[in-house]
Design a protein around this nucleic acid. Structure first.
Lengths: 154, 154
DNA sequence: CAATAAAAATCAGTGCACCGACGAAACGGT
DNA sequence: ACCGTTTCGTCGGTGCACTGATTTTTATTG
């Protein structure tokens, strides 16, 4: 009888929120392009010619994951990857014409999806929600390396 | 130059929030038991003897995923699974002694982790945050089957 | 009571997300 | 010019999450 009420646990709610968004994306935006894939396209619209690692940093994905996502986008012909002539370790990324078109087409739909997603909240609440979630996420992300003496006992 | 500011997109923020929580869980709670696994243990502390599908419903996981999670918990000896004598399709789930101990041990740590996670917000903000995130998640989950004419064009 | 429908679980396939280890390229200082 | 270090990308392994198809068992209906 020592069970906990998970609906008061932000982590559990975060997971459910993310899943709900995943489903809504599939029905309202695209079944072929995922939300992380769109984030990569978007980062390259803003800054063409970025290298792989930096794109991952911009959208919040580690090196392994970004490599997979980029691999899929290249296979679908939305992205090109060329070795940096200045630095042979890097790959420079660039959208294809199809990639640009896809990004433009999906941008409209993401805006509509966001409206539906936030519809249960009033206008002021929506702004508060965005602000709170961003502050928590930012703080937790900054909580990674710094000597942090938060390690679990066992 | 038609790039979007993803820090205003709740879906993108939800993903980052979930990732941040995942990392914090690993450092502050356990590297062996994951948050969804703990949720399953917790559901079975509250209601011992549930079947697999119902546990999935309680914690918000579909049939495929809950099967995998339960498989891991059984392999680690935290859970037992027996056929329902009344209904041969079902498997009834029950915690082992080790499962009960693990749940108790982790409960304390999750509470501490939640404090750290929500620390960037003031006390009232924390309550608002929980309320908003729950309302959005609940609404989006209820948005699944009902004929919903939200389907994407292409 | 047999044919059919519904429900529980599994399986195959795709995709995101992490870690740790590895190889190749570049940089730094001596 | 050289050796050690850092950095970029890859690879292997684990785990969550979904869909759609299949299997087994139960329930329903003609």
């Amino acid at each position: 009888m020592a069970a906990v009420d998970l609906t008061t646990h932000p982590g559990h709610l975060a997971r459910r929120l993310q899943q709900a968004h995943y489903l809504l994306w599939n029905t309202m935006v695209s079944e072929e392009i995922t939300s992380p894939q769109f984030a990569v396209l978007n980062a390259l619209v803003a800054e063409p010619g970025l290298d792989q690692r930096t794109v991952g940093e911009r959208v919040g994905l580690d090196r392994s994951t970004i490599a997979e996502v980029i691999g899929r986008l290249i296979r679908r012909g939305l992205l090109d990857k060329v070795r940096d002539p200045q630095d042979g370790r890097r790959f420079l990324l660039r959208l294809t014409d199809d990639g640009v078109r896809t990004h433009r087409r999906l941008t409209v739909r993401t805006a509509r999806m966001n409206q539906v997603f936030l519809a249960p909240l009033g206008p002021e609440e929506q702004a508060v929600f965005i602000d709170l979630i961003r502050r928590v996420a930012d703080a937790a992300e900054g909580l990674r390396d710094p000597a942090s003496s938060l390690a679990a006992p066992h």
